[in-house]
Nucleic acid binder design. Structure first.
Lengths: 160, 160
DNA sequence: CGGGAAATGTTACTCTATAACGTTTAAGCG
DNA sequence: CGCTTAAACGTTATAGAGTAACATTTCCCG
């Protein structure tokens, strides 16, 4: 997990993530339609957070004219089912790297190369959960994001 | 701190926050212009997160026709200087309840009554800081938000 | 194979945010 | 004090993010 900052074989991790996603949808009776699968592939291939309109551009570049709802519907499906996450701090979306079950995640986002590492995380852990408990607040959803510089981009003047 | 979920005297906490903000700006050589002060007051009076266009509506309702940049400039100033925060999960802004120094904060946001409690927090604390350290990631900014139900709204069918 | 729900296509629109200009204001200095 | 200059502000226009609403198609299931 959280290997995003290390070099690795993107093609292979895309393939295995797609296979995994198909298996998950089959197991849960979800329909990973061509449109949804294509959006997930785009996210996996980009290997970083993409805006909805970045995805639209890529879809249109493939000769399939698509309007915003097409992208947003696919993204809603992927996010609802844990196959992708929304990075609220950037109005962008990223494929989940371990979509084995529902989970809230924490993200480390490099402002230079836009790589995003996803750290699995116990729901409502840490100081946030503590504060919530002491106030009687019932957490339903969390957004935990850190923006900064990844190891690769800390040394280089021009960002990787 | 984090008293937002308890009933209290809004007028008084608005006044003292404005006095505090003026003192901070004076001490730092910042200009809390009328426009900026008015936006801060609006945020304090609302006592919950407001969208930039909610603020614009209120400004216009006062007979001062204002365009988006007016609101965004004031908000940028307030956020840059720690007098307000942006709630990324809702594209909304809220006055800071303890703007004594630069700080990252964590937020508990009620989805029913829209009240926001701000919990002070050591920067890069908890699991996020741990993950970052182990990966060599340098955190510059964090977004930590929890959405759910506040104590008041958990019992009632119609939200407070 | 037919009925109904889910998914998609399409048009139009709303909300969020910023670029780029010109004008005004006010702080600092000789 | 009056000049210089940067910061703040007004204004117009536009870019970017997201959704409403409705017609059409697909495909699951009985």
């Amino acid at each position: 997990m959280a290997v995003a900052f290390q070099t690795h074989d993107h093609a292979r991790c895309t393939d295995s993530a797609m296979t995994n996603a198909r298996a998950i949808c089959a197991a849960r009776g979800l329909r990973l339609t061509p449109a949804r699968a294509r959006v997930l592939e785009i996210l996996l291939e980009a290997h970083r957070a993409l805006g909805a309109y970045d995805i639209l551009e890529r879809l249109n570049a493939e000769g399939k004219p698509a309007q915003p709802p097409t992208a947003y519907r696919a993204l809603d499906f992927l996010v609802s089912n844990g196959l992708a996450h929304k990075i609220e701090g950037q109005n962008a979306f990223i494929a989940c790297t371990h979509p084995d079950r529902d989970h809230d995640a924490a993200f480390l986002i490099c402002r230079a190369c836009h790589t995003v590492a996803e750290a699995p995380r116990a729901a409502a852990s840490g100081s946030l959960g503590q504060a919530a408990r002491s106030l009687g607040f019932k957490i339903e959803r969390t957004v935990i994001e850190a923006e900064g510089l990844c190891p690769r981009c800390q040394g280089t003047t021009p960002p990787c």
